[in-house]
Simulated scan of single mutants.
Amino acid sequence: MAENKHQILLDTLDNKPTDQVLAGFWHHYLSDEKKQVLGYRDQAVIDDIVARQQHFYDRYQPDFTKIMSDGFFLHPSVIDNTFETPEDLKKIQRIDANDPWITRQVAAIKAIVDHYKGEIGSFYNIFSPWYQLRLRFEILEQDPKKIYRFLREAPQAIADAFDILADDLIVLSTKLIQQSGIDGIYLCVQQPQDSVISTKTWQQFVQPSEVKLLGAVQDVHDYNMIHICGFEGKRNRLGDYKNYPVKAFHWASYVEEVSLNEGKKLFDGRAVMGGFENTENGVFYKGSKEEIQTETKRLLEENGRQGILISGDCSIPFDTDDAHAAWVSEAANGLNVGN
């Protein structure tokens, strides 16, 4: 083929006609949530994560990857402080650009990307400031309602903390793009899952940090993607994200009941990714080769092929057979994909 899959990925994101439709699927590598947060402080854990992601590439030979941030989920200032009241959010402060959370992360992702030898492109998972604080309360405190209490009680304190986190995530993302070889970040966002929090509150106190982060990273390299997370059935108002400064959009099409084609129209024709349900109930997890390939062809026939990447709604189950992803790529690439 004239182009390798790396170039095809960039062309797809640019909405150019391509001779292939690319597919990529991903899952976490650490089942221990605390290791997801604290793993970066143990080089053995980092080495294990890198090796697992390299081996995933060797087994599956994906068309592109979304590299997981296992071991590096949360900013150190979010991890190391206690937050009893919203006033405590002032403890969240920027870290040095050479903090191990940044330098070890960049080195780990570079080792993964180098393993691809330029054959494919990749995105890297980054949790938004909102997502970071929410995960801190959920994982380390087992209190999923805490972030909503804080937001109701002191929204400006939340906004100020998120602005600080966005600054450091800009530093991290810039270093990753410039030094590790990724094409862009895959920013995980999610709207508050609490009816007491109004859209206006989210727009005023949460959204600015996400837009600031994405705008700055787009200036570094404009191949970044937003993931509007619908994990475990969470719902979002997709239209609230249409003005985010990103190259491409990914959402849970099964949860939101919005197809790739419908999303492409909603997001002004920009590139989109998704298509397959990511749960154990979906055809991707439990289907036969014939069923999975039939669904692949249906997705492309119904949604078109230009500016489309095929993936799951979100992370797939740990024990999914790697062959399933290969079957999708095989079916997609076997089609006449001219536009």
Rank of each mutant, 00 (worst) to 15 (best):
A157E: 11
N224P: 07
R152E: 10
F56V: 04
D32V: 04
L135K: 07
E119C: 02
V328S: 04
N281F: 07
H250V: 00
V283G: 11
I126M: 12
G71Q: 05
S253I: 05
D163T: 06
W327E: 15
D48G: 10
T103K: 08
N278R: 01
V189P: 12
L22Y: 13
S31C: 09
Y285F: 15
T103S: 11
F318S: 15
K200A: 08
E290H: 12
F123I: 00
D313E: 14
E33H: 13
E119T: 09
S288Y: 05
K34A: 01
L335A: 07
Y40M: 02
W251R: 07
G233H: 05
I79W: 06
G118E: 12
W327G: 15
F249S: 08
A108C: 01
F205C: 03
D42H: 09
V258S: 02
V171N: 11
W202E: 11
G287M: 09
R149T: 11
Y116W: 06
D63G: 03
V106S: 07
D11Q: 14
T199M: 03
K175F: 00
W202P: 03
I182K: 12
L260N: 09
R298A: 08
I8N: 08
H27S: 15
K289N: 13
P129A: 00
Y254E: 14
W251H: 03
N243Y: 01
D99M: 01
S173V: 00
T279Y: 07
D222E: 12
V337E: 13
Q191R: 06
L187H: 05
V78A: 05
W26E: 11
K110R: 15
K247T: 07
T103P: 08
A252P: 03
N261I: 02
V113C: 08
A271S: 07
D322G: 11
V328T: 11
Y40Q: 04
Q207N: 13
F72G: 04
Q61L: 04
S180F: 02
S122Q: 11
F284L: 15
K289M: 13
K110Q: 15
L9M: 15
P86T: 10
I164P: 10
E119Q: 15
N281P: 12
I182V: 06
L335D: 10
Y124T: 04
F231D: 10
W26V: 13
P317A: 04
I182N: 14
E119P: 11
P192R: 05
V255S: 02
N243E: 11
L260Q: 11
D183W: 06
P86F: 07
S329V: 03
L10F: 03
R298P: 10
A108L: 01
P317H: 10
D321E: 14
G181V: 03
D143Y: 06
G287D: 13
V272S: 05
A97V: 10
T174E: 14
S329N: 04
